[in-house]
Nucleic acid binder design. Structure first.
Lengths: 154, 154
DNA sequence: GTTGAAAAAGATCATCA
DNA sequence: TGATGATCTTTTTCAAC
Protein backbone atom coordinates (compact mmCIF):
# COMPACT_ATOMS: atom_id res chain seq x y z
CA UNK A 1 0.00 0.00 0.00
CA UNK A 2 2.15 2.81 -1.35
CA UNK A 3 1.81 6.52 -0.63
CA UNK A 4 -0.90 8.55 -2.20
CA UNK A 5 -0.05 11.09 -4.81
CA UNK A 6 -1.94 14.25 -5.57
CA UNK A 7 -4.29 12.50 -7.98
CA UNK A 8 -5.23 9.86 -5.42
CA UNK A 9 -6.06 12.61 -2.96
CA UNK A 10 -8.25 14.29 -5.54
CA UNK A 11 -10.05 11.03 -6.12
CA UNK A 12 -10.65 10.66 -2.41
CA UNK A 13 -11.94 14.19 -2.07
CA UNK A 14 -14.25 13.80 -5.03
CA UNK A 15 -15.65 10.46 -3.88
CA UNK A 16 -16.21 11.75 -0.37
CA UNK A 17 -18.28 14.55 -1.84
CA UNK A 18 -20.14 12.22 -4.19
CA UNK A 19 -19.69 8.51 -3.78
CA UNK A 20 -21.67 7.77 -6.87
CA UNK A 21 -19.66 9.75 -9.38
CA UNK A 22 -19.35 7.89 -12.65
CA UNK A 23 -15.80 6.96 -13.54
CA UNK A 24 -15.89 9.26 -16.53
CA UNK A 25 -16.86 12.32 -14.56
CA UNK A 26 -14.44 11.44 -11.81
CA UNK A 27 -11.69 11.06 -14.38
CA UNK A 28 -12.37 14.53 -15.75
CA UNK A 29 -12.38 16.08 -12.30
CA UNK A 30 -9.03 14.63 -11.36
CA UNK A 31 -7.40 15.16 -14.74
CA UNK A 32 -7.10 11.61 -15.96
CA UNK A 33 -8.79 9.45 -18.53
CA UNK A 34 -11.27 6.82 -17.54
CA UNK A 35 -9.32 3.60 -17.39
CA UNK A 36 -6.38 4.61 -15.21
CA UNK A 37 -8.87 6.41 -13.01
CA UNK A 38 -10.91 3.25 -12.58
CA UNK A 39 -7.74 1.36 -11.81
CA UNK A 40 -6.79 3.80 -9.07
CA UNK A 41 -10.20 3.62 -7.50
CA UNK A 42 -9.99 -0.15 -7.46
CA UNK A 43 -6.58 0.00 -5.82
CA UNK A 44 -7.80 2.40 -3.17
CA UNK A 45 -10.62 0.00 -2.43
CA UNK A 46 -8.36 -3.04 -2.28
CA UNK A 47 -5.94 -1.25 0.02
CA UNK A 48 -8.82 -0.57 2.40
CA UNK A 49 -8.37 3.16 2.08
CA UNK A 50 -11.85 3.39 0.66
CA UNK A 51 -13.73 1.18 3.09
CA UNK A 52 -17.03 1.42 1.29
CA UNK A 53 -19.80 3.66 0.10
CA UNK A 54 -22.84 4.84 1.97
CA UNK A 55 -25.99 6.83 1.47
CA UNK A 56 -26.07 9.90 3.72
CA UNK A 57 -29.42 10.26 5.43
CA UNK A 58 -31.02 13.25 7.11
CA UNK A 59 -31.62 12.11 10.69
CA UNK A 60 -34.51 14.48 11.38
CA UNK A 61 -36.38 13.31 8.33
CA UNK A 62 -36.35 9.74 9.47
CA UNK A 63 -37.49 10.57 12.98
CA UNK A 64 -34.10 10.51 14.69
CA UNK A 65 -33.44 14.13 15.60
CA UNK A 66 -31.67 13.60 18.91
CA UNK A 67 -27.98 12.93 19.44
CA UNK A 68 -26.76 12.17 22.92
CA UNK A 69 -23.13 12.07 23.92
CA UNK A 70 -22.40 9.67 26.73
CA UNK A 71 -19.12 9.59 28.61
CA UNK A 72 -18.54 6.22 30.14
CA UNK A 73 -16.02 5.21 32.74
CA UNK A 74 -15.31 1.57 33.41
CA UNK A 75 -14.51 0.24 36.86
CA UNK A 76 -11.43 -1.51 35.71
CA UNK A 77 -9.54 -1.27 32.49
CA UNK A 78 -8.41 -4.78 31.94
CA UNK A 79 -8.10 -5.99 28.38
CA UNK A 80 -10.96 -8.40 28.83
CA UNK A 81 -13.23 -5.73 30.24
CA UNK A 82 -12.55 -3.36 27.38
CA UNK A 83 -13.19 -6.06 24.81
CA UNK A 84 -16.49 -7.03 26.29
CA UNK A 85 -17.55 -3.42 26.34
CA UNK A 86 -16.50 -2.86 22.74
CA UNK A 87 -18.40 -5.89 21.58
CA UNK A 88 -21.62 -4.80 23.23
CA UNK A 89 -21.29 -1.33 21.74
CA UNK A 90 -20.89 -2.71 18.26
CA UNK A 91 -24.04 -4.73 18.59
CA UNK A 92 -26.22 -1.74 19.44
CA UNK A 93 -27.33 0.22 16.41
CA UNK A 94 -28.25 3.31 18.45
CA UNK A 95 -24.58 3.88 19.13
CA UNK A 96 -23.32 5.48 15.96
CA UNK A 97 -19.83 6.08 17.14
CA UNK A 98 -17.63 5.43 20.09
CA UNK A 99 -14.08 6.50 20.88
CA UNK A 100 -11.59 5.35 23.45
CA UNK A 101 -10.43 8.49 25.22
CA UNK A 102 -7.44 9.71 27.12
CA UNK A 103 -7.99 11.47 30.40
CA UNK A 104 -10.49 10.86 33.11
CA UNK A 105 -13.26 9.37 31.00
CA UNK A 106 -12.70 6.13 29.15
CA UNK A 107 -15.21 6.24 26.34
CA UNK A 108 -17.14 8.89 24.53
CA UNK A 109 -19.99 7.73 22.39
CA UNK A 110 -22.78 9.26 20.38
CA UNK A 111 -26.21 7.71 20.50
CA UNK A 112 -28.93 8.59 18.02
CA UNK A 113 -32.53 8.34 19.13
CA UNK A 114 -36.01 9.60 18.31
CA UNK A 115 -36.63 11.30 21.66
CA UNK A 116 -35.57 11.39 25.27
CA UNK A 117 -37.81 8.52 26.12
CA UNK A 118 -35.99 6.34 23.64
CA UNK A 119 -32.74 7.37 25.24
CA UNK A 120 -33.98 6.40 28.68
CA UNK A 121 -34.99 3.07 27.27
CA UNK A 122 -31.54 2.64 25.81
CA UNK A 123 -29.97 3.45 29.15
CA UNK A 124 -32.18 1.16 31.16
CA UNK A 125 -32.29 -1.79 28.83
CA UNK A 126 -28.76 -1.71 27.55
CA UNK A 127 -26.10 0.56 28.91
CA UNK A 128 -26.77 0.23 32.64
CA UNK A 129 -27.08 -3.51 32.34
CA UNK A 130 -23.52 -3.89 31.21
CA UNK A 131 -21.44 -4.67 34.19
CA UNK A 132 -18.15 -3.01 34.78
CA UNK A 133 -19.60 0.44 34.05
CA UNK A 134 -18.62 2.82 36.83
CA UNK A 135 -20.32 5.97 35.60
CA UNK A 136 -22.31 7.42 32.74
CA UNK A 137 -22.64 11.10 31.99
CA UNK A 138 -25.00 12.22 29.25
CA UNK A 139 -25.00 15.46 27.28
CA UNK A 140 -27.73 16.27 24.82
CA UNK A 141 -27.37 17.90 21.45
CA UNK A 142 -30.00 20.39 20.39
CA UNK A 143 -28.98 20.53 16.79
CA UNK A 144 -26.28 19.97 14.25
CA UNK A 145 -24.10 22.90 13.29
CA UNK A 146 -22.03 20.81 10.95
CA UNK A 147 -21.79 17.22 9.90
CA UNK A 148 -19.18 16.33 7.41
CA UNK A 149 -18.57 12.76 6.43
CA UNK A 150 -15.50 13.99 4.56
CA UNK A 151 -12.07 13.74 6.09
CA UNK A 152 -9.76 16.67 5.43
CA UNK A 153 -7.35 14.78 3.21
CA UNK A 154 -4.56 17.17 2.36
CA UNK B 1 -43.06 14.15 2.11
CA UNK B 2 -45.19 11.26 3.25
CA UNK B 3 -44.34 8.62 5.82
CA UNK B 4 -41.99 5.83 5.06
CA UNK B 5 -43.27 2.31 4.78
CA UNK B 6 -41.37 -0.84 5.55
CA UNK B 7 -39.92 -1.05 2.04
CA UNK B 8 -38.58 2.50 2.19
CA UNK B 9 -36.88 1.67 5.45
CA UNK B 10 -35.33 -1.41 3.91
CA UNK B 11 -34.04 0.70 1.05
CA UNK B 12 -32.50 3.16 3.49
CA UNK B 13 -30.85 0.40 5.48
CA UNK B 14 -29.47 -1.24 2.37
CA UNK B 15 -28.13 2.00 0.90
CA UNK B 16 -26.52 2.99 4.16
CA UNK B 17 -24.68 -0.31 4.16
CA UNK B 18 -23.74 -0.02 0.49
CA UNK B 19 -24.41 3.22 -1.28
CA UNK B 20 -23.39 1.83 -4.61
CA UNK B 21 -25.83 -1.06 -4.81
CA UNK B 22 -27.18 -1.42 -8.31
CA UNK B 23 -30.92 -0.89 -8.53
CA UNK B 24 -31.43 -4.52 -9.49
CA UNK B 25 -29.66 -5.91 -6.47
CA UNK B 26 -31.30 -3.37 -4.23
CA UNK B 27 -34.67 -4.34 -5.67
CA UNK B 28 -34.07 -7.99 -4.85
CA UNK B 29 -32.99 -7.20 -1.32
CA UNK B 30 -36.10 -5.19 -0.56
CA UNK B 31 -38.50 -7.47 -2.40
CA UNK B 32 -39.41 -5.35 -5.38
CA UNK B 33 -38.62 -5.27 -9.05
CA UNK B 34 -36.21 -2.77 -10.48
CA UNK B 35 -38.31 0.14 -11.70
CA UNK B 36 -40.54 0.75 -8.70
CA UNK B 37 -37.43 0.42 -6.61
CA UNK B 38 -35.66 3.07 -8.69
CA UNK B 39 -38.70 5.30 -8.35
CA UNK B 40 -38.63 5.05 -4.57
CA UNK B 41 -34.95 5.82 -4.41
CA UNK B 42 -35.51 8.88 -6.55
CA UNK B 43 -38.31 10.02 -4.29
CA UNK B 44 -36.20 9.55 -1.19
CA UNK B 45 -33.53 11.68 -2.80
CA UNK B 46 -35.94 14.40 -3.87
CA UNK B 47 -37.47 14.56 -0.42
CA UNK B 48 -34.00 15.15 1.00
CA UNK B 49 -34.18 12.01 3.08
CA UNK B 50 -31.20 10.68 1.19
CA UNK B 51 -28.94 13.73 1.21
CA UNK B 52 -26.24 12.17 -0.90
CA UNK B 53 -23.71 9.42 -1.23
CA UNK B 54 -20.18 9.31 0.06
CA UNK B 55 -17.11 7.13 0.01
CA UNK B 56 -16.14 5.99 3.50
CA UNK B 57 -12.45 6.40 4.11
CA UNK B 58 -10.19 4.86 6.71
CA UNK B 59 -8.75 7.83 8.61
CA UNK B 60 -5.59 6.07 9.76
CA UNK B 61 -4.72 5.02 6.23
CA UNK B 62 -4.75 8.58 4.99
CA UNK B 63 -2.66 9.87 7.84
CA UNK B 64 -5.43 11.27 10.04
CA UNK B 65 -5.51 8.97 13.05
CA UNK B 66 -6.34 11.53 15.73
CA UNK B 67 -9.79 12.73 16.73
CA UNK B 68 -10.08 15.52 19.22
CA UNK B 69 -13.30 16.54 20.91
CA UNK B 70 -13.47 20.19 21.80
CA UNK B 71 -16.11 21.68 24.07
CA UNK B 72 -16.57 25.34 23.38
CA UNK B 73 -18.36 27.92 25.41
CA UNK B 74 -19.19 31.29 23.95
CA UNK B 75 -19.14 34.48 25.99
CA UNK B 76 -22.58 35.49 24.92
CA UNK B 77 -25.22 33.54 23.10
CA UNK B 78 -26.77 36.12 20.89
CA UNK B 79 -28.14 35.00 17.57
CA UNK B 80 -25.49 36.92 15.71
CA UNK B 81 -22.70 35.42 17.75
CA UNK B 82 -23.91 31.90 17.18
CA UNK B 83 -24.22 32.46 13.47
CA UNK B 84 -20.74 33.79 13.11
CA UNK B 85 -19.40 30.84 15.02
CA UNK B 86 -21.33 28.36 12.91
CA UNK B 87 -20.10 29.90 9.72
CA UNK B 88 -16.47 29.71 10.75
CA UNK B 89 -16.87 26.09 11.79
CA UNK B 90 -18.32 25.15 8.44
CA UNK B 91 -15.38 26.67 6.62
CA UNK B 92 -12.80 24.61 8.47
CA UNK B 93 -12.37 21.14 7.04
CA UNK B 94 -10.66 19.79 10.17
CA UNK B 95 -13.95 20.08 12.02
CA UNK B 96 -15.87 17.03 10.90
CA UNK B 97 -18.86 17.58 13.10
CA UNK B 98 -20.22 20.06 15.55
CA UNK B 99 -23.31 20.00 17.74
CA UNK B 100 -25.11 22.68 19.66
CA UNK B 101 -25.46 21.33 23.18
CA UNK B 102 -27.70 21.75 26.16
CA UNK B 103 -26.12 22.26 29.53
CA UNK B 104 -23.07 24.18 30.55
CA UNK B 105 -21.12 23.83 27.33
CA UNK B 106 -22.41 25.35 24.16
CA UNK B 107 -20.77 23.35 21.40
CA UNK B 108 -19.18 19.98 21.08
CA UNK B 109 -17.13 19.37 18.01
CA UNK B 110 -14.85 16.70 16.66
CA UNK B 111 -11.67 17.69 14.90
CA UNK B 112 -9.66 15.25 12.80
CA UNK B 113 -5.92 15.78 12.52
CA UNK B 114 -2.70 13.96 11.72
CA UNK B 115 -1.04 14.54 15.09
CA UNK B 116 -1.08 16.71 18.18
CA UNK B 117 1.06 19.30 16.50
CA UNK B 118 -1.56 19.74 13.82
CA UNK B 119 -4.16 20.17 16.52
CA UNK B 120 -2.13 22.87 18.21
CA UNK B 121 -1.83 24.61 14.90
CA UNK B 122 -5.57 24.39 14.46
CA UNK B 123 -6.11 25.89 17.90
CA UNK B 124 -3.65 28.71 17.46
CA UNK B 125 -4.44 29.66 13.92
CA UNK B 126 -8.15 29.17 13.93
CA UNK B 127 -10.15 28.40 17.05
CA UNK B 128 -8.53 30.81 19.50
CA UNK B 129 -8.64 33.61 16.94
CA UNK B 130 -12.39 33.57 16.84
CA UNK B 131 -13.65 36.18 19.19
CA UNK B 132 -16.52 35.48 21.49
CA UNK B 133 -15.02 32.17 22.59
CA UNK B 134 -14.98 32.02 26.37
CA UNK B 135 -13.40 28.60 26.86
CA UNK B 136 -12.12 25.57 25.02
CA UNK B 137 -11.68 22.16 26.56
CA UNK B 138 -10.06 19.41 24.52
CA UNK B 139 -10.29 15.66 24.95
CA UNK B 140 -8.28 13.29 22.85
CA UNK B 141 -9.37 10.02 21.36
CA UNK B 142 -6.91 7.18 21.31
CA UNK B 143 -8.86 5.00 18.96
CA UNK B 144 -12.17 4.18 17.43
CA UNK B 145 -14.24 1.48 19.03
CA UNK B 146 -17.05 1.93 16.58
CA UNK B 147 -17.88 4.19 13.70
CA UNK B 148 -21.15 3.65 11.99
CA UNK B 149 -22.35 5.97 9.29
CA UNK B 150 -25.67 4.17 9.44
CA UNK B 151 -28.59 5.60 11.38
CA UNK B 152 -30.70 3.06 13.24
CA UNK B 153 -33.77 3.48 11.08
CA UNK B 154 -36.44 1.33 12.61
C1' DG C 1 -0.42 6.62 -18.45
C1' DT C 2 -3.42 7.08 -22.93
C1' DT C 3 -6.67 5.90 -26.50
C1' DG C 4 -10.27 3.40 -28.74
C1' DA C 5 -13.55 -0.26 -29.45
C1' DA C 6 -16.51 -4.20 -28.26
C1' DA C 7 -19.12 -6.87 -24.82
C1' DA C 8 -21.65 -6.80 -20.61
C1' DA C 9 -24.16 -4.69 -17.20
C1' DG C 10 -27.07 -1.19 -15.54
C1' DA C 11 -30.37 2.83 -15.78
C1' DT C 12 -34.51 4.99 -17.73
C1' DC C 13 -38.90 5.50 -19.67
C1' DA C 14 -43.32 4.53 -21.62
C1' DT C 15 -46.89 1.53 -20.93
C1' DC C 16 -50.01 -1.62 -18.87
C1' DA C 17 -52.11 -4.04 -14.76
C1' DT D 1 -48.08 1.42 -6.56
C1' DG D 2 -45.89 -2.54 -9.06
C1' DA D 3 -44.36 -5.16 -13.42
C1' DT D 4 -42.52 -5.63 -18.18
C1' DG D 5 -39.79 -4.80 -22.10
C1' DA D 6 -37.32 -1.55 -25.39
C1' DT D 7 -33.77 1.76 -25.54
C1' DC D 8 -29.95 4.25 -24.13
C1' DT D 9 -25.92 5.04 -21.21
C1' DT D 10 -22.02 3.37 -18.51
C1' DT D 11 -18.66 0.23 -16.98
C1' DT D 12 -15.28 -3.10 -17.91
C1' DT D 13 -11.88 -5.28 -20.30
C1' DC D 14 -9.10 -5.61 -24.05
C1' DA D 15 -6.02 -4.48 -27.39
C1' DA D 16 -2.02 -1.33 -29.02
C1' DC D 17 0.60 3.01 -28.46
Amino acid sequence: MPKLDEIDLRILRALQADGRLAIQELAEKVGLSASPCARRVRNLEKAGIIKGYAAVIDPSKVGLPISVFASIKLERQREEELDRFAQAIRRWPEVVDCFLMTGQRDYLMRIVVSDLEAYERFLKEKLTRLDGVASIESSFALGEVKRSHALPVK
